[in-house]
């Protein structure tokens, strides 16, 4: 089975993000960069599927030289080879999806995995766009997957429940939390990754049609609210925790 996984390097999710002086972009100096957490689920599922079914995993990323670090992490986890679609400067989503689809279309992939979103821009769009451009099905936010012979069954969590979806291969799967427990790259895997090939492909120079005009900080959190006192306040508190804060089921 020929499997691709789309990966992206993002600022550490625990990092305190600051804006640059003219608020046009985030300040990237001193930031710690990591493989986007949902891409870790995608990479793990790609590797598990290849281990179970046989086959190879190709990790693919899009961006500047620095973004290739995402490929090294995927290779250290166990991916067999990698493609770096190189592009400096800002690209919009469709530009990114087009560049990735151009690489994917000739790869003969049976399955393409991606995180359902990157934790930096939260767009949750690349997997769907790539599938559309390749004219293959796409199942998003998958938290359980079974791959059969030429077909697959996926579990998606939806508001208040879950749904089970079937699709033929090839197919794009975007990974949601819960899909698996991503492995830690082993010391051996890290050293072997050095010897694995990374193909560099120059992306077409397409002008972005969407532009980031400015960035801003979120509004300060409003003060907490007191819903009442004593036993009488409990139902309202539980309702708010469930419906507004969404921290309980």
């Amino acid at each position: 089975m020929n499997i691709a996984v789309l990966v992206k390097l993002v600022p550490d999710t625990a990092a305190q993000i600051r804006l640059n002086s003219d608020h046009s972009w985030i300040e990237t100096r001193d930031l710690n960069w990591v493989l986007s957490p949902y891409d870790e689920y995608a990479a793990e599922e790609a590797l598990k599927t290849a281990e179970a079914q046989g086959g190879e995993v190709t990790a693919i990323t899009y961006g500047s030289d620095a973004s290739a670090e995402a490929l090294r992490k995927a290779l250290a986890m166990g991916a067999h080879k990698a493609v770096h679609v190189k592009k400096d400067g800002f690209t919009d989503l469709l530009g990114t999806a087009n560049a990735l689809a151009n690489v994917l279309k000739d790869g003969g992939f049976d399955l393409i995995f991606a995180g359902y979103k990157a934790t930096d821009d939260d767009c949750a769009a690349i997997g769907q766009m790539v599938a559309t451009l390749l004219d293959i099905p796409c199942i998003t936010e998958v938290n359980k997957l079974e791959v059969g012979d030429g077909t697959l069954t996926a579990n998606r969590e939806i508001e208040g429940g879950h749904e089970v979806v079937e699709a033929p291969l090839p197919c794009v799967i975007t990974a949601q939390k819960g899909l698996n427990e991503p492995r830690y790259p082993s010391l051996k895997g890290i050293m072997m990754a050095k010897k694995k090939p990374i193909d560099v492909v120059e992306a077409d120079d397409v002008a972005p049609r969407v532009e980031t005009v400015s960035m801003g900080y979120p509004p300060e959190r409003p003060a907490g609210k007191i819903v009442g006192e004593g036993v009488e306040a409990v139902p309202e508190l539980v309702r708010l925790l469930r419906e507004e804060a969404r921290v309980i089921d």
């Binding site: 090294r72 250290a76 010391l187 890290i190 050293m191 990754a193």
Partner: peptide, 11 residues
């Protein structure tokens, strides 16, 4: 090196 950082981060 990249490998050294990956080892550190993985552990």
């Amino acid at each position: 090196s990249d490998e050294e950082k990956l080892v550190r981060d993985s552990v």
